[in-house]
Each structure stands twice: as C-alpha cells, then as structure tokens.
Simulated scan of single mutants.
Amino acid sequence: MHVMIFGCGYSGTAIAKAFAGGGVRISGTTRSADKMDVLRQNGVEAFLFDGETMNDELRRALADVTHLVQSIAPGKADPLLRLLGEDGANLPPSLEWIGYLSTVGVYGDHKGAWINEETPCAPVSGRSTERLEAEAGWLAMGERCGVPAAVLRLSGIYGPGRNAFCNLDKGTARRLIKKDQVFNRIRVEDIGAATRFLSDQRLGGIYNITDDRPGPPQDVIVEAARLMGVEPPPEQAFETAELTPMARSFYGENKRVSNAKLKAAGFAFSFPNYPMSLAQLWQDGRWQA
C-alpha cells in the first residue's frame, strides 16, 4: 500500500498516523520546505508541491500510489484535478481509493436544524462553494475511473495543539454569545481513523465526519476552563464583538450535522463528544503537543 496525502498538514498528519505500520509507504506534500522535516519526523516521505506543477520526483512517487488523499483547498479550481486530468488520464494505474477532505460548510445555514448527507447544499461562502465544486469533480472522476471516491465533510477540527486549552493558556479564548448558535466538532484523530476506515472498506460517496454533540461554542470554553481550574473569559455579545470577516462568517451558519451514515457503515468514534475528549486531552497532558 502506498498512501499519498496532498496537503499533509494538521489533518493530513493524523491521517498518515492512522495508516502507519505494516510496511505501508506514506507520502505527503507541503508547500513549504521548512515543513518537510516535520513530515519526515512523523514517518511521512515529504515532497514539495506548490499547487501549480509537479516536479519529476513527485510524479515518480505518484506512479505507484494506491490510496490518494486530497486535502488542499481548491481556490478557483482544484489544483490536483487539473493536473491529473478530470478524465483521470493521469491517475496512478494501481489506484484503489480516493479520499477528498471537504467541509460541512457546503451545507450552508439551516437555522440550527439537524441535517445529513441527503440535505441539499446551499453554501454561504465562496470557499464552501469552491469545495462543493471540487467534491463533484472528485466524485465524477472516481465514477469514470471505477475507483471508490469518498468525500469527507469535516466539522470544526481540534485536537492536540489546537484546542480551547491552548486558547485559554495564550489568553486568546473568547466566550462569544449568539442566541441558539451551535457548531459540530471533530477530533483530529477521528479524522485519521475515519479516513482509514473508509479506505479499508473501499467506500465511496459523501460522509459527514463529525462528533455526536453539536453545541454552543461558549460551552466548550467553559468546560475547558473548568478542567484547567481557571476562570473562563467574560461573555461577549456576538453582535458587538470585534471579529475578522472570516470569523464572523462562521457564525452565519447554524446547523446540527448528523454522523449516522458513517456509524451505520460500522465506524466507531474514539472521541464522540467534546466533554470526554477535552477530559482526555487534559488528563494525558497532550493538549499542548
């Protein structure tokens, strides 16, 4: 097995760890030469990829890839679809499975209602519209080439080194209050495990990769502060808070995302809700790692 992860960042590294062992070759790309050593330290054969052209070294590595994971944001068009050819002409000949990391942002706003993979998408932001277009491209490529292509729609990602404890520790945590606002979350290790599960089962199609417990974002801050034994930051009204346009845009979408399809396929989450996940991060001291 040769797993190639395009855009091997925070989630991509967790995916690499989920596939590690048993003689599996794991490759990953990064835009930055400075990050290549970090990938190698995590057992990933590192390649530079700027999203525009593939060098000869990367093309040679791609030739025997069996599992391809695409994690790079598409921009105006998915860079990998363009380079591989949407007809799949340049796909690795031994390819067995494709995974495309997308976002639950493609659903848009549903006023806090429960949604699933059958819910029509109505993306609010341009970046989510681009993701939706890339999803369609990868699903179509998989169908044309007879390779299972799975779209993994991820909710808010957190885990070691990226969590409410870190924000509280740095003094950047904010307890914003917007009436009835909820978000889903996903622990990064569960992204890795879900990717491995879908590939092992040769499953294609769309799957929500999200926890069981959507909830108000301020509740996560309060729970983390309780575990740390510190006072949570004061409440701030969302309407009057100073936020970047991107941060404010996240609050324009309100929905509860179901993971029932993935669980029905047989996947078991290691971190199904944020209270138990935060407790585990705090108890084992890995929240900073």
Rank of each mutant, 00 (worst) to 15 (best):
F250V: 04
S249N: 10
G204C: 06
T53I: 02
L68G: 07
V124L: 14
T103W: 10
F238D: 01
R59Y: 03
F238H: 14
A14K: 11
N273A: 13
V220Q: 08
K76D: 15
D50V: 07
I72D: 09
T244E: 10
E235V: 02
V220C: 06
R131W: 12
I5N: 03
L203T: 01
R213A: 04
T53W: 00
N254W: 09
M36P: 12
M228D: 06
H67F: 09
L176N: 13
V124G: 08
I191M: 05
V106H: 13
L58R: 00
S125Y: 14
I15P: 00
A260Q: 07
K76M: 10
V147K: 03
V257D: 05
T13H: 05
S258I: 04
L198H: 03
P234C: 14
N90H: 10
E118C: 04
Y251D: 02
G229T: 06
V220M: 15
R162T: 00
M141Y: 02
A194G: 12
P232A: 15
T30S: 15
N184L: 02
P272E: 00
D109V: 04
D78I: 05
K255G: 07
L95F: 07
W282V: 09
G112Y: 07
P275Q: 05
S102W: 11
L132F: 13
V124T: 12
V230N: 13
Q288M: 12
A16S: 09
D211R: 09
L62M: 03
P74F: 07
V104K: 03
G205A: 04
E117Y: 08
T29M: 11
G161A: 01
A149H: 00
N42F: 14
Q283Y: 01
P214G: 03
L95H: 04
P74V: 02
L198K: 03
S32R: 13
E135F: 13
G43V: 03
D190C: 04
R185G: 02
V65C: 04
M228A: 11
F197P: 05
P74E: 06
D34Y: 10
W138A: 05
A260I: 02
V182C: 07
